[in-house]
């Protein structure tokens, strides 16, 4: 069963003003337990607007958002309870840190849920371990941490609510390659361990290719492509048309194919490409 389902969502900003802007149009989408979904699209395509609909920060002009098969806008007063089930991590989440200790900042969400102190403490430790920080961080001043550590603390702050889906808006923006890899390792472990679905907005095709199971491509507020990673990246031409690219490794294989080598261009990660190339060369040796 889907945790969340979006049915024909349309949304426009600034209705009735000169700045009116159709940001989303007829979006359909559903997320199952444990899924790992990537959303790509160039700047202004509506990615951030879309994920704000997941937990009721924005209300669609038309269409429905169903969480556990129930329309979240049926009881607008209870929208807060939805936010605990659908965890949203914004771009540069470290800028939302406000407390004087890491523990207190991570505890903000669970506290808003009305949990008792003991449960909160337990959740804080758990969330901190999910992002790969040990308990020595609990009493540290979050503003004295490195940028990467601050980001992980901020993500832990959402994980501590134990949402059924974790939605991240460009989680690796501004991190160094090491920090990116580290973050993904922990996200993947977290997903496996807790069966939490992850929806990730990203600019990096390599990240998407490497980690997610299903990709949505957004352009001007519409879903223009959708499917498994290889099937989406097989459409290099269409992606280019929407201002997007395929992973570099896929590009390299496409280049080889153009030169006349019989390669299978569906590889999207370095490992897959390595296998494919080895196969190709071994095939040659045989001749």
């Amino acid at each position: 069963m889907a945790i969340i389902e979006l049915r024909d969502i349309s949304f426009r900003y600034g209705t009735g003003t000169p700045f009116e802007k159709q940001a989303l149009q007829d979006i359909c989408l559903s997320v199952e337990h444990g899924a790992f979904i990537g959303i790509i699209g160039h700047t202004g395509s509506g990615k951030s607007t879309l994920i704000r609909h997941f937990n009721g920060l924005l209300r669609p002009d038309s269409g429905q958002v169903l969480v556990n098969n129930e329309d979240i806008w049926k009881h607008p007063k209870q929208i807060r309870s939805i936010r605990f089930q659908i965890g949203l991590v914004f771009q540069y989440p470290e800028t939302q840190i406000f407390a004087d200790t890491v523990a207190r900042d991570i505890a903000y969400g669970p506290k808003n849920m009305g949990l008792d102190q003991e449960t909160i403490n337990q959740r804080v430790r758990e969330a901190l371990s999910f992002v790969g920080l040990d308990d020595s961080y609990l009493d540290r001043n979050p503003f004295r941490l490195s940028g990467g550590e601050m980001r992980r603390v901020a993500i832990a702050g959402v994980m501590a609510m134990r949402p059924a889906i974790l939605v991240l808006d460009e989680p690796t923006a501004g991190l160094d390659p090491e920090g990116c890899r580290n973050l993904f390792d922990h996200l993947e472990q977290y997903r496996r361990k807790t069966n939490t679905a992850i929806v990730m907005v990203s600019h990096s095709m390599e990240e998407i290719a490497e980690h997610v199971q299903r990709v949505l491509v957004l352009d001007k507020g519409r879903i223009v492509l959708e499917g498994s990673v290889p099937s989406v990246f097989a459409h290099a031409g269409i992606l280019n048309q929407f201002g997007l690219d395929v992973p570099q490794i896929t590009k390299a294989l496409l280049g080889l194919k153009k030169k006349g080598y019989p390669v299978d261009t569906s590889a999207v990660t370095v490992d897959q490409a390595e296998n494919e190339l080895l196969r190709l060369f071994e095939g040659k040796d045989d001749e």
Binding site: L57, V89, F90, P93, Q96, G109, N112, V158, M161
Partner: peptide, 16 residues
Amino acid sequence: EELDRIIDAQKARGAD
């Protein structure tokens, strides 16, 4: 704009 973003972020963590 920043204010908007921070409000959304804290609402996402259940701020009332």
